[in-house]
Write a protein that binds this DNA or RNA. Structure first.
Lengths: 201, 201, 201, 201
DNA sequence: GAATAAACGAGACGGTACGTCTCGTCTTATG
DNA sequence: CATAAGACGAGACGTACCGTCTCGTTTATTC
């Protein structure tokens, strides 16, 4: 049993030349650069390939299109992804998380992120990837903070968690995609203040 | 002054053949059909042209690209645009407005609307058009409802109106573009309940 | 009646922008150059396009592939195509015609011609084009010379014309495609001498 | 000397795993099938490999490309290669040989053979292989028949043998590559009749 | 009622990215 | 070592759509 498990952990090499990890990283690095420099739409698969020394065929072998590469490139850049602050106060936790989100949306990556969201409106596959790997984890963090707040008696127990999360995060996404108003720490605080008042006991 | 105004109202005919109103309507009708049938991206200017009997050159003469046509086509289909309910209660007003928004987002047009939002992430011109003609008016309605609520002493006077509107509408946009959860009257009610509690005196 | 005929002679222009004769010539000129410089296989549609300022799409609109362009380019270069010598002697006529053929096969164009023949082995469309426009006319000339020779009593009347033409022209094609031996005026003369002896009364 | 000859005849086994004769045959068999089924151009090295269980690398190790494999596959299928009839009459000999050639050209293998000739127009290496292994031996047979005919006083002694062979075989190649007319025993006879009359004393 | 001016349908065009394909080389582990 | 499996770089392929252009035609105003 232990053996078979260790074999799973360190998978027995399949026959044939293994996928080049070096190429994979080079593609993601080049994509990460390009998507910031020229934007997701103008960036071409050809330019990614020529910049990182890979061939188009290799890219198309491992990703369905440039947008999927971009999602992965974005993820590989967000490894320091704002974690759970867990300050002991849901209000404070949400304040910090929303500030982090808005700072990210305001950063150069924010524009790229918005373009991924934009592309997801046309391609269900991108939408799924976006949800699984970018939006889902963030919402999960929201649920955790909510649950702690409820457990501490800080927030009401009868609220719909999904609606509550939409309330807080929705405002940030709204400003991101509509761009009708700027984002900043003050805005984050103001929104969280309103929302927490609605959620508090 | 009076003369110039009358000239604007009934513009003095310039020499040459005037623009065909019939063609304009045919283009919008064909675009409205197509964008629902195949989506904004797959829809081509060529197909719009061939479907309505216009020529590509004519379309490009009056609109910068197919997305601009789509925005106008969408507007021309939303003539029954949910007006101001003005029930005497901000809570009730927002409830009805958010229900209307979510119903629209759930309708076939909702998908097209989301695609316009998606395209706006890439094209500032579309973004501007989107803001001016679709998002702006809706937010204006939000401000009106808010102001009435404050004047009636129903809502606090010190709240930031923009944040308040983001709080309510943001949740709907969030679900539209991320698609992480369905929209319905119950969801609308639940969100407005939370938000109003945060906004109320 | 006369009017309708003159209208046929000068065909009423079809609606839409007419095909650009300038572009057509530029494509053929560039193809003619390229196929001599690098050969038929190495020559790419992209290079033709970039060299003559046309777009690939335009080339593919009017020709099915680069080989079809090459056939037409070759034809447009052979306008001075060796005509009918009509010396009054079939022997002499064939001698001059075969010398002309072998000189052509020995020229730079000969290599390209051989490549067209080569490509025709893979593509029935090229084969058809080759037969209609390059091989057919040459054989027709052979039939004419034969007929005159028979009429003059110079050649036997009971010979199969097709076999007779194959006998004379086949030797040249054979050397062209197999390249087992050089071609020259002396070889042409030697072959025609043998063949005419076989065909003569 | 004797040692080196014996080394050639029964080569001293080099270290390492020897080349698999079984694999070599499997490659040739698969190529022979494929080139008839889909043609030389459409046939891919990959498909040869997958069909016979070899790997592409192995094929490329022993042959420069798929056309070289095809030449060898064709040769291995022509083991019954029409030999020298040696009937005692050059006329009869050529008649039988040309009939054999035309039958071969008419067979399914004829199309593949034509494609090898076609490919040889682009690749000097294929051309060399074609000449050495397919065309050369046939011409050698022609020279033998010619020499016997001359020795017997059947044919003139002053004829150029190469031209004489071109005369006879060229007609067949011409029909093969141009495809302007069918081939058959009657055609072979007719051509040999004409040629022999030209060659006879 | 001509002359002028602009809109229009048709469709050719240059540009350019797309995603696919095949080639011939390479990098593994296995026999 | 030779081999199978298969990843890889290179680069042409033919397609598709974009937005512009060039025609001849139509429909209005202006002289």
């Amino acid at each position: 049993m232990a053996v078979s498990r260790s074999e799973q952990d360190q998978p027995r090499p399949r026959p044939g030349r293994p996928r080049s990890e070096q190429t994979r990283k080079a593609v993601l690095r080049a994509t990460g650069e390009l998507m910031h420099e020229v934007g997701l739409r103008v960036m071409t698969t050809e330019e990614i390939a020529s910049r990182c020394g890979a061939s188009k065929a290799t890219i198309y072998k491992w990703w369905p299109n440039k947008y999927a590469v971009a999602v992965e490139a974005m993820l590989s850049q967000m490894f320091v992804e704002s974690g759970d602050p867990d300050t002991g106060s849901a209000h404070e936790d949400f304040r910090l998380v929303l500030r982090g989100m808005m700072r990210f949306y305001n950063s150069p990556s924010g524009r790229v992120y918005a373009q991924i969201v934009g592309e997801a409106q046309f391609d269900p596959q991108i939408a799924a990837e976006l949800n699984d790997r970018l939006i889902g984890p963030r919402r999960q963090l929201g649920r955790t903070i909510l649950a702690r707040g409820i457990a501490r008696g800080e927030l009401r127990a009868d609220i719909d968690p999904e609606s509550a999360i939409d309330l807080i995060f929705g405002a940030a996404i709204y400003r991101l995609v509509a761009g009708h108003a700027p984002m900043g720490d003050d805005v984050a605080d103001s929104i969280v203040d309103l929302a927490i008042r609605g959620l508090a006991c």
